[in-house]
Design a protein around this nucleic acid. Structure first.
Lengths: 120, 120
DNA sequence: TATTCATATGAACATTTATTCATGTGTTGG
DNA sequence: CCAACACATGAATAAATGTTCATATGAATA
């Protein structure tokens, strides 16, 4: 993966080594970086985002989500699984239906920050 | 895409129609949902996240990024293009080198919110 | 208990995407 | 002007991902 030799654009060796050192100190561990990327991947799909926007308004069952978003039950169910695995939503059984809701108020904050950036 | 018939789990029609109405009113437009998903997709890759963590500390050139992250110049360059297209980073030429830096302090906020969720 | 309804899930398929390799572009120094 | 350097980019490949289709699970009802 590594280049065979370094470039020579930054011949001020001190600054260079400082950067490496600082980066090494402040960069989160591999597992954290991986989990962080996984989390944002979950937000990186418009179907899942639409599901979250519905859940911002109410606790709903799967079939209602499917109807509200005009998608098949299977597609919704698969995405709910992803959302649940990543702790973004939680579920509750009531008879034959299963109701989903936001697991965390943090979810709204992340979405809001994203919206802010869009409007820049 | 649509199911042929609706389920009957929520026979209280009023609540049902209210949901559809509220969702229709509060759900952002298709283009916004798409842009939002695209934005989070950018955060959804550990290489790009690592690049951002370096840029949190300093303005750096491409070769330094490649060395700091132990990756090829080409891979870094491709990802920088994605980051720039989505306005997360900006660049500045200085001689033969091109220096990259954060385009927006918003980026840090989004990452921080993600980190908060991870630690839950 | 058998059937029906609501949801979950596995396999298959198409699409997207990250990296590599080779090469192109733009700048500086000789 | 030419060679060397820093970076960008297009094509190719492999891996990841979203939806569909068919089917399984689990609860209520007749």
């Amino acid at each position: 993966m590594r280049e065979d030799k370094e470039c020579m654009c930054c011949d001020t060796v001190e600054v260079h080594e400082d950067l490496i050192k600082i980066v090494h100190e402040t960069m989160p561990k591999e597992t954290v970086l991986y989990d962080l990327a996984e989390l944002f991947k979950v937000f990186g799909d418009s179907t899942r985002i639409r599901i979250l926007f519905v859940l911002f308004e109410a606790e709903v069952c799967v079939c209602d989500l499917a109807e509200a978003l005009n998608m098949t039950q299977s597609a919704i169910s698969h995405q709910l699984k992803v959302l649940k695995q990543n702790k973004l939503v939680k579920s509750r059984r009531e008879g034959k239906s299963i109701f989903y809701s936001l697991a965390d108020e943090h979810v709204r904050t992340v979405i809001d920050q994203g919206l802010e950036h869009i409007k820049e």
